[in-house]
């Protein structure tokens, strides 16, 4: 058994529903949670649209997978980053995004919202720090 914990980053750059990338990424994140790695999600470019709250797909006959993002804290995802420039370019603010809570099962430490808006320099830093980056 390997005890090496790697930093996994899931990089999301596509809007939901128009293509399958957003959903596929989410599926891989949920499956990957079984491997006990240090997982973070990064949303840049059109990927920031994935976290927009209030999605209602009843009119287009597709599965609304956006509620699943709010459960990510239960899958050991402790950090979710959103690029500030990408939000601004789309006329969005953090108020437009879902809040995702995290509770540490061991320490019972609770974080109300692990969604963090970061600047481009921080995005660069976080990508450099990651051992593996999965692109969607």
């Amino acid at each position: 058994m390997s005890e090496v914990v790697k930093k996994f980053m899931y990089l999301n750059r596509k809007a939901p529903y128009g293509t399958i990338y957003a959903w596929e990424s989410l599926e891989v994140v949920l499956i990957g949670a079984a491997f006990d790695q240090e997982v973070s999600l990064m949303f840049v470019d059109d990927g920031v649209y994935q976290l927009v709250k209030g999605q209602d797909t009843t009119g287009i006959g597709m599965k609304n997978f956006s509620p699943t993002y709010r459960t990510l804290g239960d899958y050991e995802v402790k950090t979710i980053y959103v690029d500030a420039d990408s939000l601004a370019a789309r006329g969005l603010t953090q108020d437009d995004l879902v809040a995702i809570a995290y509770e540490d099962m061991d320490t019972e430490e609770e974080i109300e919202n692990i969604v963090e808006v970061v600047d481009a320099a921080r995005v660069t830093e976080l990508m450099d720090e990651a051992d593996v980056v999965f692109s969607f």
Binding site: Y17, K53, G54, Q55, G59
Partner: peptide, 22 residues
């Protein structure tokens, strides 16, 4: 409209002059 709603946006976020159709 249905595509807009699916993506979480209401009509009050639209640029003026754009018409919504079903």
């Amino acid at each position: 409209g249905p595509d807009l709603k699916a993506r979480g946006f209401r009509e009050d976020r639209l640029i003026e002059g754009i018409q919504v159709v079903d």
